[in-house]
Computed example of a mutant assay.
Amino acid sequence: MTIRVLIVDDHTVVRQGLRLLMEAQADIEVVGEAAGGKEALLAAQETKPDVILLDLIMPEMSGIDVLRELQKQNIASRVLVLTSSLDDHMVRQALQSGAQGYLLKTSRSSDMLNAIRQTAQGISSLDPAVTRILQQHLTGKDPLDTLTPREREVFDLLAHGMGNPQIAEKLVVSEATVRTHVTSVLDKLRLRDRTQVMVFALKRGLVTPQDLP
């Protein structure tokens, strides 16, 4: 049986590379590509793929939103997430929203192809790093989950290299308030300074080097 795959990623070079890899397989056929969430939903309705290979970090509509919309529309395609993000919250959201598997873009080509085949059969396929995150969640609370919604906003802005004045302007609060939140974020995450926040975010795939100043 030929596995029909829809590739969803906002980077053209990634889509092209994945297409070349899959077209070299006798049992896999690429039936479409999409550069964003809305385009992906339309393509899924039109092509009815067996497997949707889905990135999570995309402009306008995230992969999580795509997963939720696929469920709402009762689209039967199985979804294999292929992304750079190792954020535990995003991992859990994706799996709770219907993803059959979750791989990182650093995965070997052979592992990704095997994951596509497993996904088509309804078998879950998880990157080892994702498995570790899920185990950590079962055995203890992730430090990011201890942040309040406002602290998480501050963390995200710190992770992108913003200083206190920029954060204050972005969140429409005083710099004194920002300093209080920054201190709390560093304390809860057991980090020494802003540089460690950026390194922490990079390691988890929450930001890329291109996001940093």
Rank of each mutant, 00 (worst) to 15 (best):
R92M: 07
Q93M: 10
Q93A: 04
A94Y: 14
A94K: 00
L95H: 01
L95Y: 03
Q96K: 13
S97P: 01
G98V: 12
A99N: 14
G101P: 03
L103M: 12
L103W: 05
L104D: 10
L104I: 11
K105A: 07
K105L: 10
T106M: 07
S107I: 15
S107C: 11
S107M: 10
R108W: 02
R108G: 04
R108K: 14
S110L: 14
D111V: 08
M112V: 05
M112S: 08
N114D: 13
N114A: 11
N114P: 04
A115K: 00
A115V: 09
A115M: 08
I116P: 05
I116M: 05
I116F: 03
R117E: 01
Q118N: 13
Q118R: 14
T119L: 07
T119Q: 08
T119I: 08
T119C: 14
A120S: 06
Q121P: 03
Q121A: 13
G122K: 02
G122E: 06
I123E: 02
I123C: 08
S124K: 15
S124H: 01
L126T: 02
L126D: 04
L126R: 01
L126G: 03
P128T: 10
P128Q: 13
P128C: 12
P128E: 11
P128W: 15
A129Q: 10
A129D: 06
T131P: 00
R132S: 09
I133L: 15
I133S: 13
I133V: 14
Q135A: 12
Q135M: 14
Q135C: 11
H137K: 14
L138E: 11
L138A: 15
L138Q: 11
T139I: 11
T139P: 00
G140S: 15
G140K: 12
K141V: 12
K141Y: 06
K141F: 03
D142F: 14
P143I: 14
L144W: 09
L144Q: 10
L144A: 00
D145N: 12
L147Q: 08
T148H: 05
T148A: 07
P149G: 00
P149M: 00
R150M: 13
R150G: 11
R150P: 05
R150E: 15
R150F: 13
E151T: 09
E151K: 10
E151D: 02
V154M: 00
V154Y: 07
V154N: 02
F155K: 09
F155M: 05
D156M: 08
D156F: 09
D156A: 11
L157Y: 03
L157M: 06
L157E: 00
L158T: 00
L158K: 00
L158V: 01
H160Q: 15
G161K: 10
M162C: 07
G163M: 06
G163Q: 11
P165S: 02
P165W: 07
Q166C: 01
Q166R: 07
Q166P: 07
I167P: 00
I167Y: 02
